[in-house]
């Protein structure tokens, strides 16, 4: 029992790192653009398929392939923001942006079906099925590498946000868009680049997700996005530290519940979400109340 529990906690923390990376991207996009990117889930899958195509056709190592897929996803993100998100304005902007990103999601999903078919695939590399013995547990290398990558990338995002001028303009835009504009921040540029960054991290998240999970197909995006949405709402929209904590905590809780009730473990996400919102509608780390309807 004890070892099983410890194993669940370790798995939860390792998995939580990847989710934290994807959730940070999502909450960053929300903070700057005031939209929820429903397409984030399917973009993770798109990132995974890009890695898949590179490794199958070009025999490129998964981690090396990220050097191509991350910039590619960044460009895709910027294009989507400029083409479909930026033109939206007016009183219905909130719902419009949700629907636009949902539409982008089903277009990407349909395109993935067309190119790759509905069959489940997994990412393969020499280290994917190997594991290391540590403290009496078998830890898969891919999970360890993935966790390390997630830590590095989240740290890089933190450094960017708090140590660079661009990061300061992102934070300024998150705090007050109009005021940021007044002091000379090019808000449109910040929005496009933030959307690009938020989408680019999904390339890394997708690669780890595709290599460590039990396979994926174009439909896997729904499961992912529902978890990610639950995580960032739970954390409090726009709170980056909150997204990290919530990801670690929820993934650990899920893998503990998984010991007894594998079918219901994902319900933990939604149950926790509903429970937290009943008590604190702004989420655990949400600073501001929801802006006016």
């Amino acid at each position: 029992m004890g070892t099983e529990l410890t194993r669940a906690v370790i798995n939860g923390i390792l998995g939580g790192g990847i989710y934290a990376l994807m959730a940070v991207g999502l909450t960053l996009i929300f903070g700057v653009l005031d939209i929820i990117n429903i397409a984030q889930g399917v973009m993770v899958i798109l990132g995974a398929y890009l890695s898949y195509a590179l490794s199958v056709h070009l025999h490129l190592d998964l981690f090396l392939g990220l050097l191509i897929t991350v910039p590619a996803m960044f460009v895709i993100g910027v294009i989507i923001q400029v083409a479909f998100i930026r033109p939206l304005h007016g009183s219905e902007r909130t719902s419009m942006s949700l629907l636009a990103s949902y539409a982008v999601a089903i277009i990407i999903e349909g395109a993935l079906y067309l190119f790759f078919g509905p069959n489940y695939v997994t990412l393969n590399a020499p280290y994917v099925n190997k594991s290391i013995s540590m403290l009496g547990f078998h830890l898969p290398y891919i999970d360890l590498y993935g966790f390390a990558l997630a830590v590095v990338l989240v740290a890089a995002i933190y450094v960017m946000l708090y140590r660079t001028t661009f990061g300061r303009s992102i934070r300024a835009t998150m705090q007050d868009r109009t005021a940021a504009m007044l002091v000379g921040v090019d808000v449109n540029r910040v929005a496009a680049l933030t959307y690009g960054i938020g989408v680019a991290v999904t390339a890394a998240g997708g690669m780890i997700f595709g290599a460590s999970g039990g396979g994926f197909n174009p439909n896997s995006g729904y499961d992912l996005i529902s978890r990610l949405l639950a995580l960032i709402i739970l954390a409090g929209l726009g709170s980056i530290g909150g997204a990290l904590v919530a990801s670690m905590f929820m993934l650990t809780l899920e893998s503990i519940v998984d010991i007894w009730q594998p079918n219901w473990s994902i319900a933990v996400f939604y149950a926790a979400l509903v429970l937290v919102l009943l008590i604190k509608p702004t989420g655990l780390f949400g600073r501001q109340a929801a802006r006016a309807q």
Binding site: I36, T94, S95, L229, I233, L237, L277, P281, A290, R291
Partner: peptide
């Protein structure tokens, strides 16, 4: 809850 949060719920 309102807006985004309502949609997500």
């Amino acid at each position: 809850v309102r807006r985004h949060t309502f949609v997500v719920i």
